[in-house]
Design a protein around this nucleic acid. Structure first.
Lengths: 203, 203
DNA sequence: TTGACAAGCTAATAGTTTTTAGCTATAATA
DNA sequence: TATTATAGCTAAAAACTATTAGCTTGTCAA
């Protein structure tokens, strides 16, 4: 049954290389070497270098759909928050945020993909879209929706979302430099803690 | 006197291309075309593609020294802040921050350089250093130094720095997507405003 | 005016990298 | 068992890119 899942290995090794050197700078030879085969053998599994890249992108959107189902805090949480705002479930938001952070850092595939899309974001509008969707604008919009329940205006909700997510987003970069998950997580917790207190006061 | 500053134009056009496609993906032919000459003519001004790249990096460090002198808020502001914290000069911090933001977005050269170093950050430790220095870790450290005057501990200062700078950092990405300076600046102002109030309260 | 240099061009070279062709052996299938 | 498909390999072709060689023109100083 283990029919030498070479195709899968190619995808993973290619992603790893793309993530640190970028698509163009990564040679099909490098990929092959990482997998432990010769370059021409790649073409038994993918019809071109671009095809490998496309495979990665497709894989991500698959994973994203599953991910969305597992951490399906949207509905309930939003309702709970809208519920006249007695108690915003910061516990849940905190858990969710930490899970997201770990997802984009420690998880092999997603961590590399985040880097890859960071490197490719300006090359095409499609890549820019993906970066926004997963890493920057998307999460902001998501949080803004949640905060719109407790904010006085849309623009207030946006500001809150940026103040909430900005530090998380910044910690991706700091994590990339230090590889120190522990202190990143600690900072996230403290940030969310102080943020929740801020909200309580302004209320 | 206008001895057709081709060398300068090459630098600028190359940077523009590097900033959106990355170094590897940009052909020496592309650069030449942007300048309006043929590829081999480039070699009358630079001895290699890498040499153009290096010229850009060098130029940046020159510009950085000047920039540092103009907006020389370091000394005075820090002292003022250290001065037992009567009134952190948020006015100055605000002006400084907005100037920084405009510098890395609207200024042609610096704006492109920010993108370039974003795209190259994982390729080599040197590039990673530059990204950290100018765009992420550097500003955080800088603000942490300032906040250490009003914070109870180093780690508290770090948290404040991240909460202050994170949103700014995030706005770079949002700006890249929307090109809307006006609303970015407005959000920065409101963020700093609300941040300063937060500090006042916790004091 | 003349000589030298600067800066461009075309044509060609050298080096890389992606991709194809064709062969071989193993594993699955009939 | 005979056959067929899979997945690897080597060798080579094709395509691209950076770079060099050598020529030409115009400018500026002697």
């Amino acid at each position: 049954m283990k029919k030498t899942d070479t195709k899968e290995r190619i995808l993973n090794e290619a992603l790893k290389l793309f993530a640190e050197k970028g698509y163009e700078a990564t040679g099909v030879t490098d990929i092959a070497e990482s997998v432990g085969i010769k370059a021409p053998s790649l073409y038994k599994h993918y019809k071109s270098k671009k095809d490998i890249f496309d495979g990665i992108i497709e894989r991500v959107s698959e994973m994203d759909k599953e991910q969305a189902k597992e951490h399906e805090m949207p509905e309930e949480t939003i309702e709970a928050a809208e519920d006249s705002y007695k108690n915003v479930p910061f516990e849940k938001i905190c858990e969710f945020t930490k899970a997201m952070f770990l997802h984009w850092t420690e998880e092999d595939f997603s961590g590399c993909f985040r880097k890859l899309v960071t490197l490719e974001q300006y090359k095409s509008p499609e890549m820019g879209k993906l970066y926004q969707q997963y890493i920057s604008g998307g999460p902001v919009k998501y949080m803004a929706d949640i905060f719109s329940a407790v904010a006085e205006s849309e623009s207030e909700a946006l500001l809150l979302a940026i103040e909430f997510y900005g530090p998380i987003y910044l910690l991706y970069s700091i994590y990339d430099d230090t590889s120190d998950v522990k202190s990143a997580m600690e900072l996230i917790e403290r940030h969310i803690q102080s943020f929740s207190e801020l909200i309580d006061k302004t209320k």
